[in-house]
Design a protein around this nucleic acid. Structure first.
Lengths: 527, 527
DNA sequence: TTCTAATGTAATGTT
DNA sequence: AACATTACATTAGT
């Protein structure tokens, strides 16, 4: 006698879930486990809910609870995209978005509110896991740093036993306490997305994705956060064969990108236990092993900003001399496992100079991590179709590039991988090497408006070191072909082909955090 | 190769602290709904579940899904108890509870949420089984009515083909559509628990337990809902030998109670098939056949409220004349099975007057249900220990009774059971017979806050009839001994001794809804 | 399987 | 809007 519970107004606001459940509804389960689902095609019910009407509190808002409408993946994509651009859209903007995604303004507003809350929660969560400042995991520091650079503010940590200011420069933050000891300078590349081969990871918020490098550690690190798990991709400078800027348009609204060509695969880490905040090395977690098979990494973002940041990077002694230092590092660190980049504030950084000079002396002691060398090596592509994506164009269109590109390359002598069609080797040309903007630009409205003040971290402005050249600075530029290396299939110690990762298919660029399809959840993982 | 995903900080925060939730704050979900838990005392290992890491698309929420902790029976008892008192405890209260049951605040909150959802699901389930308004089973109406009376609102049904308002008075609801036809007036006794002999059924929510009577049908009905199954106990007015109010304290916070002494056993019904929404007669489903062996039923609740409701009941013509009408009914309905109270909106109600007078003319056509007379008769107690419970005191302590008691009795002439030691016969004394409170008292805070408005039932306020005498009204009172009848063992048609039911032993007063012991669910039910 | 603890997120309500 | 909470929908553990 199934009754017709659904009686939606015909004007169905699309939202249709093509495949709506059919109301199995057996008589059984409790409230949880709901069978019926009949996607509401918008029955804009305006049930009065007189209960409230009669409340002693006057005639408050009747409104029965709005029917819960799940946002579809499509809608989510757009919403996330918008959130990327602006986490706090104006009413007008919200209306536009609402129209675009076919949701009510209300829903859109709520979505943004909840979304912001989520981001905030992440931040909070991360910070809460730290017993004291020194145990703040790297990814959090990365976040803090990025947050700080985005807002132009510094950070304060008032964890018990380690309260104080965390100095911050324009795009680098000093961690590790007072600058007199154990200071680790981290620089960030302000990116919106990270693209490796056909996969892309879009940054929804600072905590989601951050790219940074340590002049002292001589490492580049991508931090990727998802829900509770942290991931990072890391490699020493000497893995970098070439690096250049690729930006088709100087329009800040257009994405530019730093392209990094590696001569060896990076290392992969994950930290599933939020308790410790430490990383464990794992195999390539990107789907299809893109990060291992493709040696071209593209850090996308505002071209102007990235240009400056790239300039800063390439002017580092530790970067310039990365391949020389590599020899030193490998020679000293005989045991690949002796050192780990995942150790918070490694003591080896003491080898480097500690002054604020953005180009500190270098120490290059990172060894190899992982069980074997296999995953640390690049392999020749074979059998794997070369993919072409927007992020990895065959050629750099210099004619359309209103800005300039930078190419810095260095052939990796010992690389197992054959450097292919790459004649573009440029020795880094140190550009102006000091503060052009000693004064921080404090802009509270910048960023996502995330108010960290309620957390143990607060903002302040303590310019320490600042380096980057003027937005109008220019590099000699020349783009390589950018043909990605690809290896067909070879085993990496900790993963198999089914191991997908935090990267999104190029087609759906902003659905980064969206839930995983059910069928994707059961691959053989731990052997 | 199984990577070592487990790596707890050595400082094993064993979390011991047996009593205090250590707020381990595990990592989990988004900002909303603070989770975190880390239950004390258990080896809080956070198995990462890398499975999820493999998402083809984005990530993979490593989901450090909180380890599932089953609540122990002890905890459940307390939780249910608290739920009885307040289904929506405040944060402070939740914390207290958490401490008491040694669970995290989070878990407690989740428990309550799920618990509320369950209750809601029941309600919904019930409503969904109705093809149209007229087929809404009585128990649902009872629920709706009770819900309505608790919120002070009426009900609206917008089922297709049967939309409209359902008028409601203070504690009665008219069902059956417009009042010009087929109207069935149902009155409710606002109770918190139902006690029969040594067993008690506690109401956790409206849907769990409701006691109502139909002046027109001349029946008293107890609706008991447990999980998916519905039960009801029903008997015509003429089964009532005596009825009185027993309240030791006028304090609203103290339970008072209406005591009903029967001269015949009631009828039992169940509706295990939620599809039909109709009841099947069964044997006594109360444990130890208490409902059959004990003729004293106690409806407990706010003494003042019950006093008023009782006054209303006893002033009904149909009640006053119940024994006379009984003769008529049995005479007309030769076949005991001709009529069934379980039929929704019986047509015979037309015999009664339809105006809003709370004391409609009576019709008394109910016949006998059940296969035989056996279970409809009271038997002399023998062998079964007479129990004495608070609800069935040997004497009514008039001196301590700050309010008044009412005793209305009538010896059942044909009862197979020998009326024993009962000389207290009072002809009902109609007290003031009309509305003293025509105006509804609206109190939104009443009830559990269950908003039924999202269901096909909505609220409105349409005072129709309202009767009860003032809270200070008085009855002549005299309590009977209240010695319960008890029969040792005699077979009832559809049940065996093993058939337990949603009643709890007096000792554990609030575990009413707790799952029925497995062995209690498989008795030969519908013959 | 069922039941239900836990998760994720849309919607509410309050300030 | 932030924030705390609830309802609701789903997942997943036992």
């Amino acid at each position: 006698m199934a009754i017709e519970m659904e009686h939606h107004s015909p004007l169905a606001n699309v939202n249709q879930a093509p495949a709506s459940a059919s109301e199995g509804d057996a008589a059984s389960p409790p409230p949880f486990t709901r069978r019926s689902s009949a996607r509401p095609s918008s029955g804009n019910h305006s049930q009065p809910n007189l209960k409230r009407l009669l409340g002693r509190r006057v005639f408050a808002q009747p409104q029965k609870r709005q029917k819960r409408r799940r946002v579809t993946p499509d809608q989510l994509t757009i919403l996330e995209e918008e959130f990327c651009k602006n986490a706090k859209p104006t009413a007008a903007n919200r209306e536009r978005i609402a129209d675009e995604v076919n949701m009510t303004k209300q829903s859109v507003q709520i979505w943004f509110q909840n979304r912001r809350a989520k981001v905030k929660w992440w931040a909070k969560k991360n910070l809460e896991t730290c017993a004291d400042f020194n145990s703040i995991p790297e990814y959090v520091k990365a976040y803090m740093a990025l947050e700080a650079t985005e807002t132009g503010n510094g950070l304060v940590c008032d964890y018990p036993g380690r309260a104080g200011l965390i100095p911050v420069s324009h795009n680098s933050v000093l961690f590790g306490g007072n600058q007199a000891e154990g200071t680790v300078l981290t620089h960030h590349l302000t990116c919106r997305s990270l693209r490796i081969g056909k996969w892309i990871r879009v940054r929804q918020h600072s905590i989601d994705l951050s790219v940074s490098y340590s002049p002292q550690e001589c490492t580049m690190t991508y931090y990727i956060n998802n829900e509770q798990a942290r991931y990072k991709v890391e490699y020493p400078f000497w893995h970098i064969k070439n690096i250049w800027l690729e930006n088709r348009d100087s329009d800040p609204n257009t994405m530019g990108g730093i392209v990094i060509e590696l001569n060896r695969a990076p290392f992969f880490f994950t930290d599933l236990s939020s308790e410790t905040g430490s990383f464990y090395e794992v195999g390539d977690f990107t789907e299809d092993l893109q990060a291992t098979q493709c040696n071209l990494h593209r850090i996308e973002g505002n071209p102007t900003v990235l240009a400056n940041q790239l300039a800063e990077l390439v002017s580092l002694d530790s970067f310039i001399n990365r391949h020389i230092l590599q020899h030193y590092a490998t020679a000293v660190a005989g045991d690949p496992h002796t050192l780990s980049l995942s150790a918070p504030v490694s003591a080896i950084t003491q080898l480097g100079s500690q002054h604020n000079d953005p180009q500190p002396r270098v120490n290059m002691l990172q060894g190899h991590w992982g069980v074997g060398q296999t995953h640390s090596s690049w392999h020749q592509p074979h059998g794997h179709r070369r993919q072409r994506s927007r992020s990895v164009p065959d050629t750099v269109d210099l004619t359309t590039s209103r800005n300039q590109s930078t190419l810095l390359s260095y052939d990796q002598p010992q690389g197992e991988m054959k450097p292919h069609h790459n004649e573009n080797k440029y020795a880094p040309v140190p550009q102006q090497s000091n503060d052009l903007r000693r004064n921080l630009r404090i802009d509270t409205d910048a960023g996502f408006g995330l108010d960290m003040s309620q957390y143990p971290v607060l903002a302040t402005a303590t310019p320490l070191s600042d380096f980057s050249f003027s937005p109008t600075g220019t590099y000699q530029s020349q783009g390589p072909e950018g043909e990605p290396l690809s290896a067909a299939s070879f085993g990496t110690p900790y993963c198999n082909g089914a191991f997908g990762f935090p990267m999104v298919d190029t087609e759906s660029s902003c659905a980064a955090i969206s839930p995983i399809p059910p069928n994707a959840s059961s691959g053989p993982f731990v052997a």
